[in-house]
Design a protein around this nucleic acid. Sequence first.
DNA 1: ATTAGCACTCTGTCTTAATGAGTGCTAATG
DNA 2: CATTAGCACTCATTAAGACAGAGTGCTAAT
Lengths: 342, 342
Amino acid sequence: MELSERKLKILKAIIKDYIETAEPVGSRTLSRKYDLGVSAATIRNEMSELEEYGYLLQPHTSSGRIPSDKAYRLYVDQLMESKRLAKRQQELLRKNLAQKFHEIQNLLRNSAEHLAELTDYTSIAMAEKTQETLVKHIQLVPVDEDRFLLVLIINAGHVKNSLLKTGQALNQEELQKISNLLNTHLQGKDLRDMTKEQGEIMEEELPEYERTIRGILLYLREISKEIERIDVFFSGTTNIFNFPEFNDIVKARSFLAMLEEKELMKNLLSLSGREGLSVSIGRENLYEIAQECSLVTTTYKVDDRTVGHLSVIGPTRMDYSKVVSVMYRINRDLNRSLKNDF
Amino acid sequence: MELSERKLKILKAIIKDYIETAEPVGSRTLSRKYDLGVSAATIRNEMSELEEYGYLLQPHTSSGRIPSDKAYRLYVDQLMESKRLAKRQQELLRKNLAQKFHEIQNLLRNSAEHLAELTDYTSIAMAEKTQETLVKHIQLVPVDEDRFLLVLIINAGHVKNSLLKTGQALNQEELQKISNLLNTHLQGKDLRDMTKEQGEIMEEELPEYERTIRGILLYLREISKEIERIDVFFSGTTNIFNFPEFNDIVKARSFLAMLEEKELMKNLLSLSGREGLSVSIGRENLYEIAQECSLVTTTYKVDDRTVGHLSVIGPTRMDYSKVVSVMYRINRDLNRSLKNDF
DNA sequence: ATTAGCACTCTGTCTTAATGAGTGCTAATG
DNA sequence: CATTAGCACTCATTAAGACAGAGTGCTAAT
């Protein structure tokens, strides 16, 4: 079903107006505000047809019309024009680019903060949990008489460390000996598979360090849970109060409650964005609470492994043009950083 | 100015009732609901005097009265009785205790989550920024052909690490040589004082590793900023929607906006809690936006150094008795964990 | 000193009426 | 024949007025 040139023009005007004002738009306002070259009555007829086709909705019989999810989809895919970034935005982006980060989490978190400031919506950063937890390298580093630092490098480039108590005085050489033992036995093994037997074999080999080795094994098993923790950051959560659709305390609350559900957010982002930049609008989102929102999500990879998502969430009446433009830029910058630094 | 027995009894009843209902309480309700042994008229007279003394406020001429900050202060210091924890709470606390954490941040974050669930208010966890950033130990650990891991231990027990590129192939022995060099020159030095000259001296000593050393120095200077980052976590932020005093969208918004201001929160917590458990009520808080809230804050130390705060924030009409009881327990548990594990 | 009775105050809620933006339909127009 | 002007009708929002309910302060009685 192809829409006529004129219908597209009218639809685009309606969407633009609604994005701007959040008010249902009527035929008269439209003809007065935009130069469409036809009278209000004609627009009325066209609008009526656009409603039949499912592009417009009428909140009640005698009100103006608002765009449907279908209309936004058409708008995002075909109608909208990319926006030039404002000076203020350009500058912020330059700053974002200039900083250096040594952990992907911090990089994402920082970008999320800028993203929220640039778009005036709520931004979400998510550091993807590690899929595998294979031991790559273990190193014990001396600290005090009775403490040492265990450094654990996992295959995916993740590093974990922790101060552990020895229970016995150990010098650097002894620690190195234990490190070597651990590496020969555990390299390539999955953290979740640290069995008791594993420990016993090692303890037999260096029985004088039995207690220390046992402590380490215990720690490795515990840490595997911590590594799988999902990290989700937000910025600009209070921005939603700017939008009349969330002026209702119940709506605002359920929006914020949704953000607090980390598991849900994780799935939402993973589902919404798989490759590059993607937009999911209203009911396209699988979760009901998110169906009055739209998400623009970018996905980041290092060596073909997804390491994180960056996302903007707002009402379906979102300034897609602005958001997409900003995210394209951030996406480009971030990918550059990731390539260079990780 | 000493309050009579009867006045105290009435005041306590008013506070209890207001904490429960959030409605200004009048003399009739009071005499009907609580067994005070005197008529409504007498209560009226007493209330009128309590108002003169500054313990009660009257929102408008013909309404009931609400407690002032002064009244809450009296209540917290002298009137309230500690509450026994409910079964549900006991259980959650046991769970909280059972988990092991290897980073103070995670420990605090987790406790904050439980705290919010237990009290039905908003909880805040703050990991205090490190005051000093003196190098305690540096260790380089081999990873790939072209990458190694730098582990940095700072005096306060903080550990930072990062994957760095060598720019040249380095084996374990060579890395150890560089580690030793770094330790002899940098131990005890402040991270913020890493000067160029410092680097040049070291580069002269091992000129063949010039590039690597330069990279490390650069990293150390950068990381000093990251270490000072404040970490603030929240839990139960949407709980405030349960309270009628935040049913106004403007109030709710400004509350949430306050939480987003990390610097402000940091100061608020640091000021509010210095030792053990402290309560700051309404206008006792220095920041204006926090003056309709009360904070119950606990402070945590390791080796006499403040490492974090845990706090509950809610309306001044807070169930102090419940909150204080819960926090005493968490405080005890947490101090135990800190003593054992850090 | 305490209490019952009463007039008065203020808020919140409900009803009603007025306003205004918008629609759909019909008939006129180029 | 597509377009447009005109008109009756719908629905939401807002303002004003009426009313009930909870509370107070004061006075007089106990």
